[in-house]
């Protein structure tokens, strides 16, 4: 550990504390406000003197917010499971065999990773309408099942997988799927867990795609529900709004604290995609 002179280190701590508070306080203020009764929402005190769950009750009573959260949970779970399974198969094929067109196909996957959603949304929307998938779970799950980043990420991990383990499994008579499922998957569990969490965050927090393909409580996700809340029902009632914002963020933050270090490392890796 190199030591820097005291004034420099002190200045660094001051900057860190100021930035940390700038990041933390708005979230804490919102959290505090979500438990304030009506007559305290406009008070300067950051926390309630008489904490109440009334705001949360209103969120669930005035909008089908429970349904929105449920839609988010179900579609996110289906999508992430599918993404990881399909990406594992593809990454396995890329690392295990030499075959014709391998490099070209890999380039095609990389290319799909570089194309931002903003460039494909108009035709995709039309496609959803024509397939009759508009405002259904299908539109939220199927078009996003192929996750190029996941293929790329798992390929990196599988490439460093010890060949001896695969060879010995084969000597014992295991087929290729069996090798993937019983030898590789158990050993790649940390990478798979980190990847799943990243994909979960991405999907749960997604805003644009659900905004254009959902319409009713049948498929609307919590993020778009928040928008509906803001625009139509309780747009000026900040107590219930902060309660809804808290409900939307909580699952993700809990998940993060369960697997903190791994998530941060994988986030760095996922940032290397563009």
């Amino acid at each position: 550990m190199i030591r820097f002179s005291t004034p420099w280190t002190a200045a660094a701590h001051v900057v860190c504390i100021v930035v940390s508070l700038t990041m933390l306080l708005p979230l804490l203020l919102a959290f505090g406000a979500s438990f304030k009764p009506d007559n305290e929402v406009n008070a300067a005190l950051p926390w309630p003197t008489a904490p109440t769950l009334a705001n949360y009750v209103r969120v669930f009573e005035e909008l089908p917010f429970a349904r929105y959260l449920w839609n988010s949970l179900v579609t996110t779970t289906l999508r992430v499971t599918g993404q990881v399974a399909l990406a594992a198969l593809a990454a396995y094929a890329f690392t295990r065999w030499q075959f014709r067109g391998r490099d070209m196909l890999f380039l095609a996957v990389l290319g799909a990773m570089m194309i931002p959603h903003s460039l494909t949304m108009v035709p995709l929307y039309i496609m959803m309408a024509q397939l009759g998938w508009f405002d259904t779970y299908l539109a939220l799950v199927i078009p996003n099942l192929a996750a190029p980043f996941a293929v790329f990420f798992l390929r990196q991990h599988m490439m460093s997988f010890p060949k001896e383990l695969i060879d010995s499994a084969e000597l014992d008579g295991a087929g290729s799927l069996r090798v993937l499922w019983s030898v590789m998957v158990p050993n790649l569990r940390p990478a798979l867990a980190a990847l799943s969490i990243i994909l979960f965050l991405e999907c749960w927090n997604e805003y644009f795609w659900p905004l254009i393909v959902t319409e009713s409580a049948a498929s609307m996700t919590a993020q778009v529900g928040l928008r509906k809340f803001l625009n139509e029902e309780l747009g000026n009632e900040y107590g219930p709004l902060m309660a809804a914002a808290t409900l939307v963020c909580l699952p993700v933050i809990v998940l993060f604290f369960l697997a903190q270090r791994r998530v941060m490392e994988t986030f760095v890796a996922s940032g290397l995609k563009g």
Binding site: L86, A87, L89, A90, Y92, A93, F94, R96, W97, F99, R102, L105, A108, V109, G111, A112, I115, L119, T120, M121, V122, P123, L124, M127, I142, P143, N144, L145, A146, P148, V151, S176
Partner: peptide
């Protein structure tokens, strides 16, 4: 049967990317 297996494993990701990424890009 390495001649076919890798393609089978790759097909979901390739087909889905083709339909939901490359085709819309061209169609735009």
């Amino acid at each position: 049967r390495p001649s076919l297996t890798p393609y089978i494993y790759l097909s979901p990701v390739i087909v889905l990317s083709g339909i939901f990424v490359y085709w819309p890009l061209i169609y735009t």
